[in-house]
Design a protein around this nucleic acid. Structure first.
Lengths: 98, 98
DNA sequence: ATAGTATATTATATAATTAGAATATTCACA
DNA sequence: TGTGAATATTCTAATTATATAATATACTAT
């Protein structure tokens, strides 16, 4: 047992974030949002998924605190909420280009 | 649709890695391994899980290419296989201390 | 060969996630 | 107020992940 290990409670929280990132479409949505905010419709077009599915994924990420939403008319704009996420995604993009 | 978005195939690969990281015990094991290689027994003691469970988690991470193993006598030493993982974990540790 | 220790595998029951379809809500505007 | 567009919610079936227990393998030393 070395120093500096995270507590197990904290591991559970971080694992939960990873779980939220562990779906290909959610990850793609997040990558899109790293370029700036988008509406649900734009995101759906970008990832080619049916609207309810996109909405479900966004809701899940919002509940996890990863993205935020604001309504403008009858569009809803989503954006990255946790400022550490883009760096995490950049770290991730260096991984195994196999 | 902006430039520089990862391909969907690549998102699937990266999401799979995230899924592997999305279990509290696996994440804890990885954090332990960031301090250097350890045997299955040491890891089991560190995270307080039964031996078969630890072994299952390690096998899964090995199949994903995240860790590697070498046998020495009847101990098996595990270590981080993908050199980008520690950076990914450090990025993650900056996230939401809630 | 036998016994003991360390690690790995398998089986199974349970729980969680996912896709897909249907429907509901919210808002703008005629 | 009523219609259409954008988004959200709910439900169900199918899939996948997990925990637990039992058992198997690999190696060392006697």
């Amino acid at each position: 047992m070395k120093k500096g290990l995270p507590e197990k409670r904290r591991c559970a929280r971080l694992a939960s974030i990873f779980k939220t990132l562990s779906h290909p479409q959610r990850l793609y949505l997040l990558c899109c949002l790293c370029d700036g905010e988008s509406t649900v419709g734009e995101l759906g077009a970008a990832c080619g998924a049916p609207q309810p599915v996109v909405s479900q994924h966004l809701t899940r990420m919002r509940l996890e605190g990863i993205v935020a939403s604001r309504r403008a008319g009858n569009h809803v704009h989503y954006s990255i909420a946790d400022p550490h996420i883009p760096a995490l995604i950049r770290s991730m993009e260096k991984i195994s280009h196999e």
